[in-house]
Design a protein around this nucleic acid. Structure first.
Ligand SMILES: Nc1ccn([C@H]2C[C@H](O)[C@@H](COP(=O)(O)OP(=O)(O)OP(=O)(O)O)O2)c(=O)n1
Ligand SMILES: [Mg+2]
Length: 594
DNA sequence: ATCCTCCCCTAC
DNA sequence: TAAGGTAGGGGAGGAT
């Protein structure tokens, strides 16, 4: 075998060339391959390490946003220097000069070729791909704890005036060692997700206790009920603040809950830090009459309703009330599906005949009375021949009522597309863009057109929904298919070590949860939220702002829920992504193939 | 055809 | 001060 003619400087580089280039396609390919590079004729996103292009169309730029896109001069200069030069100053997309180093290629991802390691280390000798040990982390935490003037924590990099170096802001960043438990304790969305799983389990347990068998589903007309608390968080929190009951009220995080303790703002603080971007989890109907909505920022809500009162979260009480609620409905219904902490679907097809002479309304009022007596909170109930119509009936039932809905009444409701479950703001927009804004419009559109707009499955679902048809059964207790943890708040890193540290802690979180359910898996996915080029301070304080989402997955050799294996695999995945730690605004770890 | 990877969307 | 999580349905496009 002959020795290669050139030093194999491009070993491990898998490249794809896009569009017209100078030097030509052919010349670049020759230069790269002769020196150990691997050429992909078609872009394979999982394999490619570099995309070479001189200019990109708008859509290609979007598509390639998360890849190393370099100008052809990089190849020429590497050849000239006879070594692999850092690609960063040859970036075609994004800033040409980034302040901080970017992680090297992940050599483990690229296969067994031996020659690459030396090259990579040359390209960036500082950063090693390694899993921090427990000891290393506790050591680093000890260091963080020291607050003498000589050992002060180094400054956080604050490029966008987010106030990251204010003492109280710093204490709430993801780099703090107790960040994850503290954050989870206060995150409503985390609680919402956790409770959903817990309530599914609780329903399964109650059904065993109550001796409920699987319903003989196949035949006959169904009667489905959709039971949902009215402004759940507010209703429960107001049990502790009954004097506010008739005022417009919202549940949210804010220091000031002013009307409770009479305190005003602490001191002169820019608006960005004073709760204007606190989200309203739930607001009552008095507040809604001003246009206030769940999920809205407090600042915006206050503009609509200056008298809006705020009350704090009472997470323990929400869970307590929810359990009481599920005890009541699970005992009564033939079949129960937990939809969320405050919402259940019931199949009552048999029980209304066995105990209520076919009077669904009487059963519904019975449920409402029992829940009110037990929890002091109101539920509304929608009744229909299927899940869709029961859900839509609930809209009419609220607040504090019951409503039945059949297909013919549904036809006359003149609903907008957004009212259908499964149509969110994106699908709504593309439907409206195509001249379809109401349920009646969907009904008169040919299925082929719907398929073009929103894909086969969704089109079929909407086609049926628009005619009041929904054959879905209540979800039986299916085994959970995935475990994950995502955090997109307070995530600000100043160096690679902090990122690796956080990934280890997040992996521990996922593994803890898997162990609790006695489950293992083989497919690990790392999701990163990366600040989009050109974006500065997020709209929400310490939030993720507008990001590109990047995910990469890896198969493990064997089933596991071991955090060392999972975090090390994630750290390898991260190093294959070429992301500046300063741009990371969110991290998620998921395990599947359980 | 069907699977796999890397996404996007929705709901609470 | 704020606490923008997550499971599951689904699609595009390449690999098998
Ligand atoms: N953007 C949102 C939506 C909901 N929730 C929480 C608080 C709600 O109280 C609970 C239940 O959500 P619902 O959609 O059922 O809303 P409500 O129960 O508050 O009001 P209603 O059901 O009367 O419309 O979930 C939240 O935190 N953030
Ligand atoms: Mg509700």
């Amino acid at each position: 075998m002959r020795a290669p003619l050139y030093r194999q400087i491009f070993t491990g580089v898998v490249f794809h060339i896009n569009g017209y280039t100078q030097p030509s396609h052919y010349e670049l390919k020759k230069l790269l391959i002769e020196r150990g590079g691997q050429f992909l004729h078609y872009l394979s996103k999982s394999q490619v390490t570099h995309i070479i292009a001189s200019n990109l169309s708008h859509s290609k730029e979007k598509e390639f946003r998360n890849y190393r896109v370099v100008r052809p001069e990089w190849v020429v200069d590497c050849v000239q220097a006879d070594r692999l030069i850092s690609w960063h100053s040859y970036r075609l997309i994004g800033s040409k000069n980034m302040g901080a180093p970017v992680v090297p290629l992940n050599i483990d991802e690229l296969g067994p070729q031996g020659g690459l390691a030396a090259n990579i280390r040359q390209e960036n000798p500082v950063i090693e791909c390694s899993v921090p040990t427990k000891q290393a982390i506790s050591r680093s935490c000890e260091q963080k704890g020291i607050r003498t003037s000589t050992h002060r924590k180094s400054a956080v990099v604050d490029r966008f005036g987010e106030g990251l170096n204010r003492e109280w802001v710093r204490r709430n960043l993801a780099t703090e060692s107790d960040f994850i438990p503290r954050y989870y304790e206060n995150s409503r969305l985390h609680h919402l997700s956790t409770w959903k799983s817990e309530m599914k389990d609780y329903v399964a347990q109650l059904r065993r206790e109550y001796g409920k068998g699987t319903r003989s589903v196949l035949c006959g007309r169904r009667v489905i009920m959709h039971v949902d608390f009215d402004c759940f968080f507010v209703a429960v929190s107001l049990l502790s603040f009954p004097h506010l009951k008739n005022m417009p009220v919202a549940v949210c995080h804010t220091q000031q809950h002013a009307q409770l303790d009479g305190r005003g703002p602490q001191e002169d603080m820019p608006e960005y830090f004073t709760g204007h971007s606190s989200q309203i989890a739930s607001c009552n109907y008095a507040a809604r009459s001003f246009g206030v909505k769940n999920g809205m920022f407090l600042g915006q809500a206050k503009q609509l309703c200056s008298a809006l009162a705020t009350v704090p979260y009472c997470f323990d009480a929400y869970k307590r009330v929810s359990k009481s609620f599920y005890e009541i409905v699970t005992r009564i219904a033939d079949e129960t599906q937990a939809v969320s902490v405050d919402e259940a679907l019931l199949d009552v097809s048999d029980v209304i005949y066995r105990q209520y002479e076919g009077n669904a309304n009487a059963l519904a009022q019975d449920i409402r009375r029992r829940v009110l007596e037990k929890t002091e909170c109101a539920v509304s109930i929608g009744i229909g021949p299927n899940i869709l119509l029961a859900r839509l009936a609930t809209i009419k039932a609220k607040p504090d009522g019951v409503c039945g809905l059949d297909a013919s009444t549904f036809y006359n409701m003149n609903l907008g597309v957004r009212d259908l479950p499964g149509v969110g703001h994106v699908v709504e927009k593309s439907l409206i863009h195509n001249g379809i804004s109401t349920v009646a419009d969907i009904r008169s559109a040919p299925i082929s057109r719907l398929k073009d707009i929103c894909g086969d499955k969704t089109a079929m679902l909407l086609f049926n929904f628009s005619r009041g048809i929904d054959d879905r059964m209540l979800a039986s207790d299916k085994l959970r298919q995935a475990f994950g943890a995502d955090i997109g708040w307070g995530v600000r890193f100043s160096n690679q070590h902090e990122v690796d540290d956080f990934i280890l802690r997040l992996a521990e979180e996922v593994c803890r949860s898997m162990a609790a359910f006695n489950r293992t898996g083989t497919l690990v996915t790392l999701k990163i939220k990366k600040r989009r080029e050109g974006q500065g301070k997020p709209e929400k304080f310490l939030g993720h702002g507008i990001c590109d989402n990047i995910s990469k997955s890896a198969s493990l050799i064997q089933m596991t829920n071991d955090h060392v294996q999972i975090s090390s695999s994630c750290i390898k995945l991260l190093h294959g992504m070429a992301i500046d730690p300063l741009d990371i605004r969110g991290v998620g770890i998921h395990v599947q193939q359980l």
